[in-house]
Simulated assay, not measured.
Amino acid sequence: MAEKSIIEKAKKIFENYLVRQGSRKTPERFSVIDELYALPQDEHIDVEGLFLRMRNNGYSISRATIYNTLDLLVECGLAVKHQFKDKVALYEQALTYKHHDHYVCNQCRKILEFSDERINLIKEEMGNAFSSHITSHSLVLYGDCQIRNCENLPVH
């Protein structure tokens, strides 16, 4: 869960973004920030999961509002959207985001985050090879974990 100051900072960034875009500042939009940033920092959630979480926490909000708000949060840099293989889009908070890559189990669909400095070295080498300054990358590894009955585990 993000610190209260991080959530307040995210809300301020979002408010400024909405003002610049000429968009409405509704309580529902800001409640999406509250719930997204209440998740553990390494958790990924889809719209349906966020919708159920918000309903369970007493919010009256539509899926459409969640979809639209998440799109806005991605646009202003407060959320990161991932599309892993055949899964629906998953989101994670981005304000304190440190770049990482992902491993996804083919069976249980568990998502693990990892960082490895060697990937940055490859990124640098490829940038040199292409005469380019590579600014970002995305790496997702898919495999079959060795956890017994992993397909019965809850998905992250």
Score class of each variant (00 low, 15 high):
E3D: 15
I6C: 13
I6R: 00
I7P: 01
I7D: 00
K9A: 07
A10I: 01
A10C: 05
K11F: 00
K11N: 02
K11Q: 03
K12R: 09
K12C: 03
I13V: 14
F14I: 02
Y17N: 01
Y17F: 11
L18W: 04
V19L: 12
V19H: 13
R20S: 09
Q21Y: 03
Q21H: 10
Q21P: 08
Q21N: 10
G22R: 08
R24Y: 03
T26M: 10
T26S: 14
P27T: 04
P27V: 07
E28R: 05
V32A: 06
I33N: 00
E35H: 15
L36P: 00
Y37E: 00
Y37Q: 01
Y37P: 00
P40A: 06
Q41T: 05
D42P: 13
H44S: 05
H44L: 05
D46L: 08
E48Y: 15
L50E: 02
L52T: 10
L52Q: 04
L52H: 10
R53E: 00
R53K: 15
R53C: 05
M54A: 02
M54F: 02
M54T: 01
R55E: 10
N56W: 04
N57D: 08
N57F: 07
N57V: 08
Y59N: 08
I61H: 02
S62E: 03
R63N: 08
I66L: 08
L70I: 04
L72A: 12
E75G: 05
E75T: 11
L78N: 01
V80R: 06
K81S: 02
H82N: 12
Q83L: 11
K87M: 12
K87C: 09
V88S: 13
A89E: 04
A89M: 04
Y91P: 05
Q93D: 01
A94Q: 05
L95W: 06
L95Q: 04
T96L: 11
Y97Q: 07
K98P: 05
H99M: 08
D101P: 06
D101M: 14
D101S: 15
D101N: 14
H102M: 07
H102Q: 06
Y103E: 03
C105I: 05
K110Q: 11
I111R: 00
E113F: 02
E113K: 15
E113G: 15
F114K: 11
F114Y: 12
S115D: 08
S115K: 11
S115T: 13
L121F: 09
I122K: 10
K123H: 09
E124F: 15
E124G: 15
M126G: 09
G127K: 08
G127D: 04
G127F: 09
A129W: 11
F130M: 12
S131F: 11
S131G: 10
S131W: 09
T135H: 11
S136R: 12
S138G: 12
L139P: 03
Y142S: 12
D144T: 13
D144P: 02
C145Q: 08
N149Y: 12
N152H: 09
P154G: 01
V155W: 00
